[in-house]
Computed example of a mutant assay.
Amino acid sequence: MSDSLTASTVKFAGHGGDEIEAYLVRPEGASPRGGVVIIHHMPGYDRATKEMVRRFAELGFDAICPNLYFREAPGAAPDDAAATVRAGGGVPDERLVGDVAAAAAHLRALPGANGKIGVIGHCSGGRQAVLAACHLDLDAVVDCYGAFVTGTPPENFPLKVTNLVDQLPRLRAPLLGLFGAEDKFPGPEQVAELEQILTEHGKDFTFHTYPDAGHAFFAVDRPAYNVAAANDGWERIAAFFGSHLEA
């Protein structure tokens, strides 16, 4: 772990060659290390997400969070950018995969990088992390209560998303899933369906469900924050990425 970090906003070509921005944090030192792409949640590229990026750097990884809403709302406040993108149906899956691929390539090109990349997301970002791992060569993926990896979105759901059931057989990386038993999206039945599909296809995965937690239990700035679940979850994430991303 490192207490000395360097944080910066960088820009690079994302999906389709579009310029996007990202928040990059690196620990001090030149030892070979892995990288983590953090996919922000539906509320956007906000302070809480950037705190997570810094935490991954403290754990010894190069960490980056691409601003998935940069095209629609460059320079806008996170809430405004999220509202704009949500009104348009959300981030298209193909674009998400392209932006994560570009963020991973940026990490791999950094001095001291060992070439191993993990991806993590919460809520909508959890689904997107699994999506990325079904299409990209990554080394580890963490899904924190990603909605609609399985299951069907309700008719009034604001995002134009489908589940990933038909894509899960192509999952290319070990998966850690962290869920709340009191969550509805994904509910326990959707987590069970995901477990069944991954088992049938011989995928490498580990799930853990917290009995007293609901959705967004990692979110320190929300009433849903669950200290015990979040602390245990961070320990599991650190161990999982440590085992898969070390040189």
Rank of each mutant, 00 (worst) to 15 (best):
T6K: 12
S8N: 13
F12R: 04
I20C: 07
E21T: 12
A22W: 00
P27S: 06
E28K: 13
E28C: 02
V37Q: 01
I38W: 05
I38N: 01
I38S: 01
H41N: 13
P43N: 12
T49S: 11
E58Y: 04
D62H: 12
R71V: 07
P74N: 12
P74H: 12
A77V: 10
D79N: 11
D80W: 08
V91E: 04
V91M: 11
E94K: 13
D99L: 07
A103G: 05
A103K: 00
A104T: 03
A105E: 15
H106E: 14
L110W: 10
K116I: 09
I117E: 00
I120K: 04
G121C: 04
S124K: 11
S124A: 15
Q128Y: 11
A129K: 03
L131K: 03
L138F: 08
G146Y: 02
P153F: 11
K160T: 14
T162A: 15
V165A: 15
V165S: 12
V165Q: 12
Q167T: 12
P169W: 04
P169K: 04
R170W: 07
R172Q: 15
L178V: 06
F179E: 00
G180W: 08
A181Q: 13
K184N: 14
E189V: 11
Q190S: 14
E193P: 06
L198N: 05
H208P: 00
Y210K: 05
P211I: 09
H215C: 08
A216I: 11
A216K: 04
R222K: 15
P223H: 09
A224C: 08
A224P: 00
Y225K: 01
N226K: 13
G233C: 05
W234I: 08
W234L: 11
A238V: 06
G242V: 06
G242R: 04
S243I: 08
S243P: 00
H244K: 14
